[in-house]
Simulated scan of single mutants.
Amino acid sequence: MWENKIDINQVVEIRAKTTAFFGVGAINKMADVAANLSGRGITKVIVMTGKSSHIKTGAWDVTKKALEDNGIKYLLYSKVTPNPTVDHVDEATAEAKAFSAEAVIAIGGGSPIDAAKSVAILLAYPEKNATELYELSFVPEKAAPVIAINLTHGTGTEVDRFAVVSIPSKEYKPAIAYDCIYPLFAIDDPALMTKLPAEQTIYVSVDAINHVVEASTTVVTNPLAILLAKETIRLVAKYLPIAIKEPENLTARYYLLYASLIAGTSFDNGLLHYTHALEHPLSAVRPDLAHGLGLAMLLPAVVKEIYPASGEVLAEIFEPILPDFKGTADEADKAYTGLRNWIESVGIKSHLRDEGFDDSVVDKLVNLAFETPSLDGLLAIAPVKATKESVRNIYVNSL
């Protein structure tokens, strides 16, 4: 296999809109990144993180030294939680403004990076707030520079133009997508991910799979999105079981991280539809629900719903975990069962009912899927027409 020919200790550049430094030891490229920021005249930055992963991974020590060596002052905001809220973003923005921050550095997974992208926009639009941003009341065309130091192999947000932040008062979890929030640089270092717990390792990897299943089957998909989808699923199927058993296996982490990166590029090209549009209401109502778990519980039912329209693509990209499928409409139930079995084989046993959702909440979830700002845009590009009936079918079949 070609993977064996690759030196995983060679840090290479993968270019899309964002320049990503990828490989074991990539965190040390922060010296070059800080020098680049200094060369742009940037003297102050806000650093967005969660509570502790930036410290436990060692990423903060390297970042702090790089900033100090280049004369860049920093403000550390370490309050970002999973499923970040507009309140976090507004608080961090206020602190960043008071500090006169000129750029934003994120250290973490999707939550700190998405919150950082949001702060970057609001630094450029000081009269706006995060609720206005996520209720789509204005279209930003500029943002402060964003640097993304990625600590999980799932979201792909370090190389794309998307961000997600919740509005708790309305139980909304919208998504935004603007060219101005492509990170200037990203750090993808698999050595920073060896301490990910098994559960989180599974959830983020399933997130990557969801990205490509959706990206490859929207009505606006393209050959690149499909090509990247097939490779993403092959790599996750091969290396996720290894990473679960051997969490410090750098080769497994390297290829799961690569899968995540190309999945981010895939949905940056092909966009998303049902699974993310339906998961966002789940974790808006239940903020403690892991995003990847929500996606995993929905995915088999989504595949069943779209299989008659997208069977040929799905049969192709799922070949590593669902072999011998032809892509015909009569395989929809078989695909549902096979995918559910694969998800259980990697350690996710839950259905929605196991996580506290039941028939009584389905109507609320259906309404949120259509009412939450931005989610209607995802549903509009699903391969089968998104109606309240189709959305209800997916939720019910996921209970």
Score class of each variant (00 low, 15 high):
1 M>C: 14
4 N>M: 01
5 K>T: 15
8 I>P: 04
8 I>C: 13
9 N>K: 11
11 V>L: 14
13 E>W: 02
14 I>P: 06
20 A>I: 13
22 F>C: 00
24 V>R: 03
25 G>H: 06
27 I>H: 09
27 I>A: 01
30 M>F: 14
30 M>G: 05
34 A>Y: 05
37 L>Y: 08
42 I>A: 09
45 V>G: 03
46 I>Q: 01
47 V>W: 04
53 S>L: 14
57 T>W: 06
59 A>M: 12
61 D>M: 08
67 L>N: 05
73 K>Y: 02
76 L>K: 13
78 S>M: 14
79 K>T: 08
83 N>Q: 13
85 T>I: 06
89 V>N: 11
90 D>A: 00
90 D>Q: 12
95 E>D: 05
100 S>C: 09
108 G>A: 04
108 G>Q: 03
109 G>N: 02
110 G>E: 05
113 I>Y: 02
113 I>D: 02
114 D>N: 05
115 A>L: 10
118 S>W: 07
121 I>A: 09
122 L>P: 07
123 L>R: 13
127 E>S: 13
129 N>K: 12
129 N>G: 08
135 E>L: 05
136 L>K: 13
141 E>N: 12
143 A>R: 00
143 A>C: 09
144 A>S: 11
146 V>W: 00
147 I>S: 09
149 I>T: 10
160 D>N: 15
166 S>F: 06
166 S>W: 04
168 P>H: 03
180 C>K: 08
182 Y>I: 03
182 Y>H: 11
187 I>N: 08
190 P>R: 05
192 L>I: 04
193 M>D: 10
199 E>P: 00
200 Q>N: 13
200 Q>R: 10
205 S>F: 03
205 S>P: 07
206 V>P: 03
209 I>F: 07
209 I>W: 04
213 V>A: 05
214 E>V: 09
218 T>E: 13
226 I>E: 05
226 I>V: 13
229 A>E: 01
232 T>A: 05
232 T>C: 15
234 R>G: 10
241 P>S: 11
241 P>H: 00
241 P>K: 06
243 A>G: 12
245 K>D: 14
255 Y>K: 06
258 Y>H: 11
259 A>V: 00
260 S>W: 00
267 F>M: 02
271 L>R: 12
282 L>K: 07
283 S>F: 09
289 L>M: 14
291 H>I: 15
293 L>M: 12
306 I>M: 04
312 E>K: 13
315 A>T: 08
318 F>N: 04
322 L>H: 04
323 P>Q: 03
326 K>C: 02
328 T>G: 09
330 D>M: 07
332 A>I: 04
335 A>P: 12
337 T>V: 01
340 R>A: 12
340 R>I: 08
345 S>I: 08
346 V>Y: 01
346 V>E: 07
350 S>C: 03
351 H>K: 09
355 E>I: 15
361 V>D: 07
362 V>A: 03
362 V>H: 10
365 L>Y: 01
367 N>Y: 00
369 A>N: 00
373 P>F: 13
375 L>F: 15
376 D>Y: 15
378 L>S: 03
381 I>A: 14
392 R>E: 09
397 N>Y: 09
